[in-house]
Write a protein that binds this DNA or RNA. Sequence first.
DNA 1: CTAAATGGTTACTTTAAAACAATTAGCAAA
DNA 2: TTTGCTAATTGTTTTAAAGTAACCATTTAG
Lengths: 336, 336
Amino acid sequence: MVTLKQLAKELNVSISTVSKALNNSEEIGEETVKRVKELAQLYNYTPNKVALSLKQNKTKTIGVIIPDILNHFLAKVLFGIEREATKRGYNIITCISNESLEKEKEALELLANGSVDGFVLCVAEETQIEGEVNHFKRTIAKGLPIVMFDRVAHDVLCDKVIVDDFDATYRATKSMQLKKRKNIAFISRINDLSVGKLRERGYNKAILEESNQEPLVLNLKKKDDSQQKIKAFFKKHKNIDGVISADSSSGIIAINTALNKGYKVPKDISVIGFASKSVSNHSIPRLSIIRQHANQIGANAADLLINRLEKKFDEEIEFKTKIVKTSLVLSKSTLK
Amino acid sequence: MVTLKQLAKELNVSISTVSKALNNSEEIGEETVKRVKELAQLYNYTPNKVALSLKQNKTKTIGVIIPDILNHFLAKVLFGIEREATKRGYNIITCISNESLEKEKEALELLANGSVDGFVLCVAEETQIEGEVNHFKRTIAKGLPIVMFDRVAHDVLCDKVIVDDFDATYRATKSMQLKKRKNIAFISRINDLSVGKLRERGYNKAILEESNQEPLVLNLKKKDDSQQKIKAFFKKHKNIDGVISADSSSGIIAINTALNKGYKVPKDISVIGFASKSVSNHSIPRLSIIRQHANQIGANAADLLINRLEKKFDEEIEFKTKIVKTSLVLSKSTLK
DNA sequence: CTAAATGGTTACTTTAAAACAATTAGCAAA
DNA sequence: TTTGCTAATTGTTTTAAAGTAACCATTTAG
């Protein structure tokens, strides 16, 4: 890598002349500017990012902490974050908390030593279960803004981007009720998460609004064999005619299990699930999905953070909570 | 963030005394060391990463460029890279090339300005199609080592981590032939990729070793409706009794399509596909998979890079190509 | 001789370490 | 006992990493 120093030496001028010439300062003569720029081009000079960061006390880098990269939704959000960040001239440093509070803490502390200007993160499962928030507060107190997405800690003052989880399942359930479904079950593998609970509540509300319906919920654990559990669930509750699923796999597995047991989908059982378009292909008929627009969530989160990072000194920005609305995309796993 | 300077001022000693005391230098008195360490602890001092990077001319950061984060395999490799890197004290900066040559070039150049010490990457599809490699060579010439994984550019001298793609499909096909399958088809949505081609060749070899068998290949385009194409394929070739799939979705869709058409799986049609364990759940019976050990691939790639970064000046390490062997994990979509 | 034009010096960001300086202890000689 | 020297101990100064920018210096034109 060429440095200003080397260019200066070769041109027989001072370092600052080179710097100023490259930054189009008025103080440097036209001729000199030209000479400098030509040599810089020749050697493919680019300012050293690290020196710049040190001098300007900002890194143009965002720390992203996600609990699980294998979660398709989170991966997609990451994609959205990356794209928006890149567009605005930022890089992202990614850490994976693996749903662990300890790792989340470590990642925050590791990157809060000048490596990044701020954080975009999704709270780890363990953190949510234990209700721990001090590490977030400490980071913010250090002057590093945080934007939380999807799973958020409500008692931390920061920007947030969330999904209308409650509404989404409420509306999905309602839409099934409109088609005369009377025994709609709710299947979830994310009962420990804040969003999982919200989704269940949305479902519950819709069910309880019908005087003759009762909630019927199957909560799966991470280690459970979903196929078996769902199969047993269907066997126990023979009158199920609809399924709302809260995570990206349960819906698909529900359809396949129902088909396997001889039910017709959607005639006998209608299914709607939180999932992405690509996963919806994994069943025939295709799963009707609640799309979360993960891309947008990521883009919004990055946007909020960068806006805060680039605000002028005098302006105070209030903390915003942005809700990205889900869309119900009906495919053939539900009757039109 | 507290700096050495602030500590030094408060302690009435020089900056370097503080620095040395914190680094357990022999040159500083026991008493002073204690005083310094106590204050540093009190203020929660951590060395500024950026200043350290500048001074030591290394960032302890790896640039990771992946073509597609929504690809489950690639996401899993990223996970492996992240874990290994974290374990060895490195951070990763992630860029997504979106399968585009241009973006890949940009990412390389963007990060080659001192942001990272080296790269771990998977070659973008467009790059493979166009056979462009100069941007890689330029980066290596700048002194930034590259490790390529999965899709690699063979005429670039660097460390590589690959999968035994050819062998994997060869063995999978052979295993079906042993079970008396006579009309085994090959379905792929990644025909443009080097690995896709290798997988097809492995299949071809096994087929052509049987005098009375002919290759039967379905290449899907990205924009195709896989369900429809596969359905049509089955309709056209009614005697298919086995399917080998090269990508993570086709196998699942093949099973579901076969079931939908009334075939019994595995009795009438046996299916084996490249896929991950979690996806194999998306069919009943579960898809028999060729596991690529994406985690290990990532860990190996990070390992190779870090070893090279941390080598002593005098030692020359030869460029290695590590092959991570796939495992054939048979589930109920194939007969035992 | 002054002022505009141009470019150089120096300071600053943070850290580490080589080189150097100051202090003091210990010991020997007067 | 006192002086002087060496060497160990302890700490400071300086340099270096790459960059920007405030401030200062030189040159030349008018």
